[in-house]
């Protein structure tokens, strides 16, 4: 028993040390984010940081504030309190809550990406697959049709959609294909940080597994950092390096993924973990 406690303590100390070291070349940092919907708490006093190439999982039950937090830190929702910092490509630190809207939208288009749970929210359904992938390229100034098409074809291959479907509309795709197309459309400009809200939420289990596998490989291959919101602990176990657990808008536990899942400290996290294991 004592040995167990001891190990645990040293683990935590090690972890804290690592965090301190990492902070110096952080990619993204949110501090004390609060968002209220009138009387309702969306999320409260949440801080997190993300290092280059790292995957952060946000877990918690329905209504715990995961989507609210994600939309706040992506810049989609205006925060009531707190600051959001991005260490941009030129190593200048930008505060999302202070920069102008054009600048923010430019960053959202180049450095960041957002994958919606429902592919319909993240795709243009009446535009061909190639056009969907090409849009972000054209938005940042690509003006060569042949090149754009070639890049789109390469990405279809990467997400395992037959290149012959390049001129088909997403409405003719299955749910899993649509989600893979959405991922390609977001990754094509090689953002440094990608936000995902339940990216496999609406899909059946075998399709989910394939997409998760794909995501894991792409994120590793490209060295992209990611924040992934899910209520599925299997998803975070597969993808995330670190996780935060939310309840009622608060972060109640944070740590390395394996650590939290194998040895949850907070009562609620314990419940969350055990409820999954029982299934």
């Amino acid at each position: 028993m004592f040995r167990h406690r001891l190990l645990q303590r040293t683990n935590q100390i090690k972890f804290k040390k690592r965090r301190l070291i990492m902070k110096q070349n952080f990619l993204f940092q949110a501090s004390n984010i609060s968002k209220y919907y009138g009387q309702n708490v969306g999320c409260k006093n949440v801080s997190l940081d993300i290092n280059p190439g790292e995957v952060l999982g946000i877990v918690g039950e329905s209504g715990s504030g995961k989507s609210t937090l994600l939309n706040c830190i992506y810049g989609n929702l205006e925060v009531d309190e707190g600051d959001i910092f991005l260490n941009d490509k030129s190593k200048t630190i930008l505060n999302f809550t202070k920069i102008s809207e054009p600048k923010l939208r430019l960053i959202q288009r180049s450095d960041l990406a957002f994958v919606h749970q429902n592919p319909r929210d993240g795709l243009r359904m009446n535009i061909s697959a190639g056009g969907n992938i090409g849009e972000r390229l054209m938005a940042i100034g690509h003006r060569n049709y042949g090149e754009i098409r070639q890049i789109a074809a390469n990405w279809l291959e990467k997400v395992e959609i037959d290149v012959s479907r390049i001129d088909d509309k997403p409405s003719t795709f299955s749910g899993g294909m649509q989600q893979r197309l959405q991922i390609a459309r977001n990754l094509v400009t090689r953002p440094r940080l990608i936000f995902m809200d339940e990216p496999t939420g609406g899909l059946d289990v075998s399709v989910q597994a394939k997409i998760l596998d794909l995501l894991r490989n792409l994120v590793r291959e490209l060295g992209i950092a990611a924040v992934i919101v899910t209520h599925d602990l299997a998803v975070v176990r597969l993808l995330a390096d670190r996780i935060i657990v939310m309840q009622n808008g608060n972060v109640i536990e944070a740590g390395l993924c394996d650590q939290v899942l194998d040895d949850p400290q907070h009562k609620y996290s314990q419940l969350l973990v055990s409820s999954v294991l029982q299934v």
């Binding site: 809207e101 054009p102 939208r105 430019l106 288009r109 243009r124 535009i127 061909s128 190639g130 056009g131 090409g134 849009e135 972000r136 390229l137 054209m138 938005a139 940042i140 003006r143 049709y145 754009i148 098409r149 390049i166 001129d167």
Partner: peptide, 16 residues
Amino acid sequence: LSEYGLMYVKLYEDIA
């Protein structure tokens, strides 16, 4: 914000 990527998407679709 001169976000005209979408306008080019239309031309892209035409050529495709």
